[in-house]
């Protein structure tokens, strides 16, 4: 269930409402825009666990 894949946060599109905050996550060089609504603490370079376009966790290094 729930194919979730780790990827690196490479850019952030800031938004005053966290609901609309997004970022580009790199999966081996392939980029996908991902919602950061559930990971307000996420910073550039973090490894995120991504499922259906939502980052669900900042992975421990």
């Amino acid at each position: 269930m729930c194919l979730a894949v780790p990827g690196e946060l490479v850019s952030i599109n800031e938004h005053h409402d966290p609901l609309w905050r997004t970022g580009d996550v790199s999966f081996g060089g392939v980029l996908r825009q991902v919602s950061l609504a559930c990971v307000p603490e996420a910073q550039l370079g973090d490894q995120l666990l991504v499922h259906v376009g939502m980052a669900l966790a900042v992975l421990e290094p």
Binding site: M1, H51, M54
Partner: peptide, 11 residues
């Protein structure tokens, strides 16, 4: 989907 997927639908 399970609870993993529900947040994306909620958003």
């Amino acid at each position: 989907g399970f609870e993993t997927t529900a947040p994306a639908t909620a958003l």
